[in-house]
């Protein structure tokens, strides 16, 4: 993917650039709000990674300007501004995700990949499949092969999110945010507990496991050998 990073701290920018490049992406770097806006409007990026506090303005105003120019490029805010209202403000200004510094690089990578892969138009699919697992989005039912899985609505939601991002790492923080709407770090293994239940229904009765734990990062659903 082609990414734009708006970040004024050169060392942090280089660190992120190196990591993303190693993951196979190309990264443009801008250090000021003006440069960032210019590059965002000129270049065809797949994801914009925007720091909130940069010289020459707030990252929020850059994103607003990008949206006003009619560009729907996904945006993730990467920021030390983490007040009670700041996350909502970031999303209201046109951001798609909000990651607070300091963060683990794996978290950023997972979120950037999730955003970049998002289909740009409205997803009209009514059926999702991974291997022999199929989800009927209209009827909210799931099957593995011919066996119908008995899932609670919440389990279905969790499985759907995993399947929509199949082949990608989904972090615990992403799941907390998207499935439970928790914007804080719980002290209990909340995600793991739910995932364990889900696995007991989706994977355990079958010979082939689809949900994988990615050490130090999160989970992934994949039909790999």
């Amino acid at each position: 993917m082609k990414l734009l990073l708006l970040e004024d701290d050169a060392e942090a920018a280089e660190f992120v650039q190196r990591g993303l490049t190693e993951a196979g992406h190309t990264v443009d770097i801008a250090a000021t709000a003006d440069d960032g806006l210019h590059l965002a409007l000129e270049g065809a990026h797949d994801v914009l990674i925007i720091d909130r506090m940069v010289p020459g303005g707030d990252g929020l105003s850059v994103v607003r300007a990008v949206r006003e120019a009619g560009k729907a490029t996904p945006v993730i805010f990467l920021t030390a501004v983490a007040g009670v209202r700041d996350r909502v403000e970031g999303l209201e200004s046109g951001g798609d995700d909000y990651l607070v510094k300091p963060y683990a690089f794996s978290e950023l990578l997972a979120r950037v990949q999730a955003l970049g892969r998002r289909s740009p138009t409205i997803d009209l699919r009514t059926r999702l499949e991974v291997g022999d697992l199929s989800l009927d989005l209209g009827g909210r039912t799931a099957r593995r092969g011919a066996t119908r899985l008995d899932l609670t609505p919440q389990e279905f939601k969790l499985l759907e999110y995993l399947v929509r991002h199949s082949g990608q790492v989904v972090t615990r923080a992403m799941l907390l945010d998207k499935i439970w709407g928790f914007h804080f770090d719980p002290r209990t293994n909340l995600v793991d507990a739910h995932m364990s239940r889900l696995r007991s229904k989706v994977d355990r009765p079958f010979s082939r496991e689809l949900i994988h734990t990615v050490r130090g990062a999160g989970y992934m659903i994949d039909d790999r050998a």
Partner: peptide, 14 residues
């Protein structure tokens, strides 16, 4: 209800 649905599996696992 939201909190219950989130934590019931955690409590049960423990």
């Amino acid at each position: 209800r939201r909190l219950f649905e989130a934590y019931q599996p955690v409590a049960e696992l423990a």
